[in-house]
């Protein structure tokens, strides 16, 4: 049926090319141009450095301080050391252990302001808060990334299988993840941890597993749309095996939204695990995690409210960082081209 329209060579170019994988260079340029995303990267970089310092102190120094030669030099694990300012045995008001930040005073002891030795103050056992925050950063970032990683890999697998094969496999997996979703997240993980162990490792695993549905659903919808693309059919017609099709075509094309989700999810998971620690289901004392520090601070809100403030700010900075980067990535990878 002849169509009387104007034809140009553009129409003769041949079948449409598959949706191009968004180039990394292009994405990076977009992100580089976006000031808020850059700010987010700065924050994350900052926190990573802090985490590294925490790692050095918590692990390296801890290891080295075992040896007399280093201990004599003054190498010691800073965050754990209980630098008790006043002997609680002789001073019944152990509120004095809680030093306020530099320049401020504890309302019970107005004559003893905070000093630079403990710039953010000390906690209820005399330990320096700043040092504990440093260590907590490492925990938070590690835990956020590992749990997201677990969810991402397993979720991608589940979602890819469900989306590609469809049928009853799809139904079963989707119903399964929906039911998993129906039980409150926190409750699920707490039950998991009560069953297996109340420490950080199981927190990571538990949160990771509970986050699988998010990624599964994402990948599944991407797979469903990519599956219909011509080049996938062409590959199948050419005899390429299903597994290879998934690995080589489907997953790379679905990567962009997954990356965005993963970045945002790290932030979310940090919040969740902070909540778990707050309830006592995370890092066990004396390991400092931010949530746990906040839990401890509850009993001391009057003498030293600052104890409650700093860990929250640390969480805030870190999560804001991940959110900014995630948002920036999402904007950069948005295929919609503005005029």
């Amino acid at each position: 049926m002849a169509e009387t329209s104007t034809r140009t060579e553009a129409d003769d170019a041949g079948p449409e090319q598959p949706e191009a994988r968004v180039g990394w260079r292009y994405t990076l340029t977009q992100v580089r141009r976006d000031p808020t995303a850059l700010a987010g990267l700065v924050l994350i970089a900052f926190m990573t450095v802090v985490a590294l310092i925490g790692f050095v102190d918590g692990v390296v120094f801890d290891f080295l301080s075992e040896y007399a030669v280093f201990a004599d030099m003054g190498v010691r694990q800073y965050w754990l050391a209980e630098t008790v300012w006043v002997n609680p045995a002789t001073d019944p008001a152990n509120a004095r252990i809680l030093r306020p930040p530099v320049g401020l005073t504890n309302p019970y002891y107005p004559n003893e302001p905070g000093t630079m030795a403990h710039p953010l103050g000390t906690d209820h056992r005399g330990r320096d808060i700043l040092a504990r925050l440093f260590y907590g950063t490492r925990i938070a970032i590690t835990v956020g990334i590992v749990s997201t990683g677990i969810a991402m890999f397993l979720g991608t697998f589940v979602g890819a299988v469900a989306g590609y094969y469809g049928g009853w496999i799809d139904d079963a997996l989707m119903r399964g993840s929906e039911t998993l979703y129906a039980i409150p997240f926190l409750v699920l993980v707490i039950a998991f941890m009560t069953a297996f162990g109340r420490n950080l490792t199981y927190a990571m695993i538990g949160v990771g597993i509970a986050t699988i549905p998010t990624f599964a659903r994402l990948i599944r919808s991407r797979v469903l749309s990519v599956r219909e693309e011509d080049y996938v059919e062409a590959a199948r017609a050419a005899g390429v095996r299903d597994r290879n099709i998934i690995m080589r075509h489907v997953i790379p094309n679905s990567f962009a939204p997954v990356l965005v989700q993963a970045t945002l999810q790290v932030g979310v998971n940090i919040l969740i695990i902070a909540g778990l620690s707050f309830l006592g289901y995370g890092a066990q004392p004396p390991t400092p995690s931010w949530g746990q520090m906040l839990n401890n601070s509850r009993d001391y809100m009057l003498p030293n409210p600052w104890f409650s403030i700093w860990p929250g700010i640390a969480i805030l900075i870190t999560v804001v960082g991940f959110n900014l980067v995630g948002d920036g990535l999402r904007d950069a990878l948005d295929p919609r081209i503005n005029n």
Partner: peptide, 16 residues
């Protein structure tokens, strides 16, 4: 460049 149902041509002539 319009293909015409009343003529058959060897090849079409798009605008380059």
């Amino acid at each position: 460049s319009i293909p015409r149902p009343d003529q058959s041509v060897g090849e079409l002539k798009p605008i380059t």
